[in-house]
C-alpha cells in the first residue's frame, strides 16, 4: 500500500469521527518526543507532527511558542526524521509532517521524499504552499507515494474547492474558520453548510478543525466530517505535562 493510502484508510477504518492529533516535534522537550508520540498514537487515528519554523505566519500563540522552544531545543527536520526512523515499526498510526515550505526547500525535495518515506512518514501538509505552487514538491512526493494534503477554507470559492479536493491526497483539511491556529473556540454558525459542501466536492475523507478543544465540538464537527483535527489544545496538554492519550480519549463522543 502506498504511504498516502495508509492515511486515507486510517481515517476510513477509524471509529467516527477519526481523531487527527497534532504535536510540535520535540516540544516541550526533545527527550520526550518518542514517548509523546507513542502515547498519542494509542489514542489518535492520524498524527500530524509539526516541524518547527522561525516564522509560523499561519499559527497562533500556542504553536508560535512551541515552535520557538523546539528550535531552541535543537529540533530540525533531520532530527525528526532520524527519530521517526528509530521508532519505525513501533507506531502503526499513520504519520504526517506539517511544515512551512522553507525547511523543505533547505532539505532538498528528492532527498526529503526518500528520507521521509524511509522513516515511515505517509505525507505532508504545507500551510504556505497553495496548489498553484505545489507541482515541484508534489512531483517529488509522487515518486515515493507520499501524500500532499490540501487545505480548504470557508472562503474558498466553489470552483477552487472542487479543484483542491480533487488534488488533495490522504484527506482534505477543512479549516473551519479564517484566521490562525488555536484561539477562539466557538464553531462558526455556517459550519454544517460549509462542511457539507466540502464533503460533496471531495472524493477522499474530509477532516476539519481549527481551535478544537472540547468533546462537544468534536461531536458537532464529526456529524459532517470524517475526522476532527486537534492541534493547539493538545500542544497545551503536553506543555502542562498532562497525559495526551487521556485528553484525546476525553474528546471522543
Amino acid at each position: 500500500m502506498l504511504p498516502r493510502d495508509r492515511v486515507t484508510q486510517g481515517i476510513q477504518a477509524a471509529k467516527k469521527p477519526a481523531l487527527v492529533a497534532f504535536l510540535t516535534a520535540g516540544y516541550p522537550t526533545r527527550e520526550g518526543f518518542q514517548a509523546a508520540l507513542s502515547a498519542i498514537a494509542s489514542a489518535a487515528d492520524v498524527i500530524e507532527i509539526g516541524v518547527p519554523f522561525s516564522d509560523p505566519m499561519a499559527d497562533g500563540v500556542t504553536i508560535q511558542r512551541s515552535s520557538e522552544t523546539a528550535i531552541r531545543n535543537g529540533v530540525t527536520l533531520h532530527w525528526i526524521l532520524d527519530e521517526l526512523a528509530a521508532c519505525k515499526g513501533k507506531i502503526s498510526t499513520p504519520l504526517l509532517l506539517m511544515s512551512y515550505l522553507n525547511p523543505l526547500v533547505a532539505y532538498g525535495y528528492p532527498q526529503l521524499a526518500r528520507d521521509a518515506a524511509a522513516a515511515g512518514v505517509s505525507g505532508f501538509m504545507v500551510p504556505d504552499l497553495p496548489l498553484e505552487e505545489s507541482a515541484p514538491l508534489r512531483d517529488a512526493f509522487a515518486n515515493e507515494g507520499l501524500a500532499l494534503v490540501q487545505f480548504v477554507t470557508p472562503a474558498t470559492p466553489a470552483d477552487r474547492l472542487e479543484r483542491l479536493c480533487k488534488q488533495s491526497q490522504g484527506f482534505v483539511y477543512a479549516v473551519t474558520r479564517t484566521g490562525i491556529t488555536g484561539g477562539q473556540s466557538e464553531l462558526p454558525e455556517d459550519l454544517t453548510e460549509y462542511l457539507s459542501r466540502v464533503k460533496a466536492a471531495s472524493p477522499i475523507p474530509v477532516c476539519a478543525g481549527f481551535g478544537v478543544r472540547s468533546a462537544e465540538q468534536v461531536r458537532r464537527i464529526g456529524e459532517h466530517a470524517d475526522g476532527v483535527i486537534v492541534g493547539s489544545a493538545l500542544v497545551e496538554v503536553l506543555e502542562q505535562g498532562n497525559d495526551p492519550a487521556e485528553f484525546l480519549a476525553s474528546l471522543r463522543p
Partner: peptide, 20 residues
C-alpha cells in the same frame, strides 16, 4: 540563497535547516 518567506521565493538569509 533562494528560499521561501512571506509569500515569495526569493533570496533569503537562513541556516541549513531552513530557519530564517
Amino acid at each position: 540563497r533562494p528560499g521561501v518567506l512571506h509569500g515569495a521565493n526569493t533570496m533569503l538569509l537562513y541556516d541549513d535547516d531552513g530557519q530564517i
